[in-house]
Design a protein around this nucleic acid. Structure first.
Lengths: 343, 343
DNA sequence: GTCGTCTATGACAACGTTGTCAAAGCACCC
DNA sequence: GGGTGCTTTGACAACGTTGTCATAGACGAC
C-alpha cells in the first residue's frame, strides 16, 4: 500500500480510502490510485486489516472427524453455505477421532482468531482441556455434546464443562423407530451394530435399540450386540460372526452409514437374506439389490443450524445455550421389510 | 501479551521468548510467565505473528466445485493430509462452477495471504481474470487446466494464461478404455453421457469415446451423445430419452459419478437391461443389483499430488510447471459385461 | 583491577492496515 | 473581510507480535 501511495503521489490514508470505497475522495485522485493499484498488482492485506480493526477474521473453524465421509462432507457443505451468507470462509480440519489432533486443530484455529468454532468433538480426550482452549471463542457443537455424557443419557451431564450450543440428531428416537419397524415385521432376534462405546451417538443408538426391545417385551440378547466397530471392515467382520452364530439374527440394526455398508457387504458375501435398517441415509441406497431401509436425517441441515447458532453468538447473542434435536424419518425401501426366515 | 508481561513483571520480549521456547530465559522467570499465561488464558495472536514475520500464514486455499460431492471431498481429504504434514491448515470453498463465486473465493484467499492455492477451475469465466488475481500466490490446478483448452485437445493451449502446475486424470485414455470394453463385448450402439461441454474433463471424455469408436471402425451416431448434463436428474432425463429412441443404445458410457447415478436410476426405472460403464468409482458400486463396472482413479491421490507440488512451490521450487497425468483402471463388476440385447 | 565473554533482559522499530484528528482549500453568506 | 461549513487530504498512533540491538550483571582470566 505504501508503494501504491508513492506511485499515485498521495498519502497512505488516501489509498486506504479508495480501497475501501470511502467518501470524500476526488474522482481524479481515486482514478490515479486505481491505476497505481492495477499497475502494481496491489492486494490489500487482510491480516493487517483485521489486526488493526481489532476485529473479525471473517472465518470460522470446522472440526469434523473425516471430510471424506459423506456424512461429514454434507455437514461441511451446510456450514459453508451459512458462513458464506455471513461473509465468512471456513477453515476445516479432520480430527480422525484423535483427541490430540483435535486439540491441535482447536489451538491453531483459535490462534488464528477464527470468529467461531464448529466442533464434532472427539470423545476419547479430556473435555476440560478442550474447554480451556476454546475459552473466549464462540463455539457450537455438532452431532455430539461436548461433555462426557452418561453411559446412555439423553441429557448428558455437563457439570465439568461449560455448556455450549449443541445440535444433535434424535439418535435414541431414530434407533427406536428402526428397531420397532423390524419388530413390527415379526423379528425377535435383532442384531445391533454400533460404533465405539465412547461415542455419544453410538451409546444413544444402542440405547434406542434396547428401549425398543424393552417396550415390546422382547428380551435383549447381548450376543447379538456388537459395539466398537468404527469402520466398514470392522462392521463386516462383526456381521459375518453374527451370521455364523448357531442361532443367528433374522434382522440387523446398523448404527451408521459405514456400519451399514459393512453389514451389507457381509450379508452379500454370505448370501443370506437378513432384514436390515441402517442409521444415516446414503446415495444409491434405493438402487441396491435389496434397497435399504434407513433412518434418514439431514446432515447439511445440521451444519446449517449449527452455523446459524454460531453466527448469532458471534454477533453477541447471550441467550442461554440452545440444544437442538433434529428429527429423523424412516425411509422404507425393502431391506427392513424382509420377514424373518425360519432359522 | 502486554497483560501477561505486566502480570509477570517482565517485558513483552521476555514473554515472547517464553511463548516461543527461545533460549536464555531463567527457569524461574519462565515459570512466572507461564503461570501468568495460564492465569490470564493468553493465546498468541497468529495474525500479528504472521504480519510481523512477513511470513507464512501456514494455510492454503482449496477451491473445488462442491465439497458435498464425494469426488471433491476425497480430494479435500488428500489435500488436508499433505497440508497437515507441512503444518498448514486448509481453507476450502465450493465454487459451484460459478466463475463469480470462484473469483470471490480467490480474492478472499489471496487477501488473507494463504501460502498457496489449489484450484479446480470453473470453466465458464475468463481465465485471465483469475490469472490476474492469483498473480504472486503459488497455485496448482486440479482436475482441469487453467486455460481455455481446445475443444478436445489433450494438451490445451495455454497461450493466454501463465502456465501452472496441473494435476489431471487420464480422461481420454480412461474413456477410451471404457468404451473399448463395451465394444469388446459386442456393443455397437453405445450412448455417451457427458457433462457441460465447457468442462475440460467432459470434452476429454467425449473425445475418448469418439476415439474408441473410430479406432474400432464403428461409426459415431450423434443422437446417442448427450452432453451438458451436470447433475443426477439431468442425466436421468437424458438416459430416459435415449432408452425411448426407436433404435435405443445397448450400452452407455457415463462421464462421471453423478451421471452414472442418474443413468442407473433411469435404467432401473425403465426396467431395461443396458450395459453401463461409468467414469469415477463410487461407494457400493459393487453392491448394486447389477454391480457397476467403472473407470476408477484415486481422487485423494490427486489431492495429495497437487498439494505436494504446491508445497514445493511455496518452498521456492522454480522448476518449469509440471503436468501430472494420473492413471485410471477399469474395474470389471458386471454392468459393463452385459451383452447387447437383440433390439 | 580490568578486560572479555556469556547469560538474561529490555527498549524500540517494524510488519500493513485503519481510526482519529487536524488542517488546508474552497464556496458561500452576512 | 471574516466567519461558517463543507470537501479533500494527510500525519500519526495503534493493533499484537518479533527481530535487532543495547545493556546490565556474573564469572573467570590475566
Amino acid at each position: 500500500m505504501r508503494d501504491v501511495a508513492a506511485a499515485a503521489g498521495v498519502s497512505l490514508k488516501t489509498v486506504s480510502r479508495v480501497v475501501n470505497g470511502e467518501d470524500f475522495v476526488r474522482p481524479d485522485t481515486a482514478e490515479r490510485v486505481h491505476s497505481a493499484i492495477a499497475r502494481l498488482g496491489f492486494q490489500r492485506n487482510d491480516l493487517a486489516r483485521t489486526l488493526r480493526g481489532g476485529g473479525r477474521t471473517r472465518s470460522i473453524g470446522l472440526i469434523i472427524e473425516d471430510v471424506a465421509n459423506p456424512f461429514y462432507s454434507q455437514i461441511a457443505r451446510g456450514v459453508e453455505d451459512v458462513a458464506r451468507a455471513g461473509g465468512r470462509l471456513v477453515i476445516s480440519g479432520s480430527s480422525d477421532e484423535d483427541p490430540a489432533r483435535e486439540l491441535l486443530l482447536i489451538r491453531s484455529l483459535c490462534e488464528r482468531r477464527v470468529d467461531g468454532l464448529l466442533i464434532v468433538p472427539s470423545e476419547t480426550g479430556d473435555p476440560r482441556l478442550r474447554a480451556e482452549l476454546i475459552a473466549g471463542t464462540p463455539a457450537v457443537f455438532l452431532d455430539r455434546p461436548p461433555g462426557p455424557g452418561g453411559p446412555a443419557d439423553t441429557e448428558p451431564r455437563n457439570d465439568t464443562v461449560p455448556p455450549n450450543d449443541t445440535v444433535l440428531i434424535d439418535n435414541v428416537g431414530g434407533a427406536r423407530t428402526a428397531v420397532e419397524h423390524l419388530l413390527a415385521h415379526g423379528h425377535r432376534r435383532i442384531a445391533c451394530l454400533v460404533d465405539l462405546p465412547e461415542i455419544f451417538t453410538a451409546r444413544q443408538r444402542h440405547q434406542g435399540y434396547l428401549e425398543a426391545l424393552a417396550a415390546n417385551g422382547v428380551p435383549a440378547d447381548p450376543t447379538l450386540v456388537r459395539t466398537g466397530r468404527h469402520d466398514v471392515r470392522g462392521a463386516g467382520h462383526a456381521m459375518t460372526e453374527l451370521l455364523a452364530l448357531p442361532d443367528p439374527p433374522t434382522a440387523v440394526f446398523a448404527g451408521n452409514n459405514l456400519l451399514t455398508v459393512g453389514a451389507l457387504r457381509a450379508i452379500g458375501a454370505a448370501g443370506t437374506r437378513v432384514a436390515l435398517v441402517g442409521f444415516d441415509d446414503f446415495e444409491l441406497a434405493d438402487l441396491l439389490a435389496t434397497p435399504v431401509t434407513v433412518v434418514a436425517h439431514e446432515p447439511a441441515d445440521m451444519g446449517r443450524q449449527a452455523a446459524h447458532l454460531l453466527e448469532a453468538r458471534i454477533r453477541g447473542d447471550a441467550r442461554p445455550p440452545a440444544r437442538i434435536l433434529l428429527p429423523t424419518r424412516l425411509i422404507v425401501r425393502g431391506s427392513g421389510e424382509i420377514p424373518p426366515s425360519q432359522g
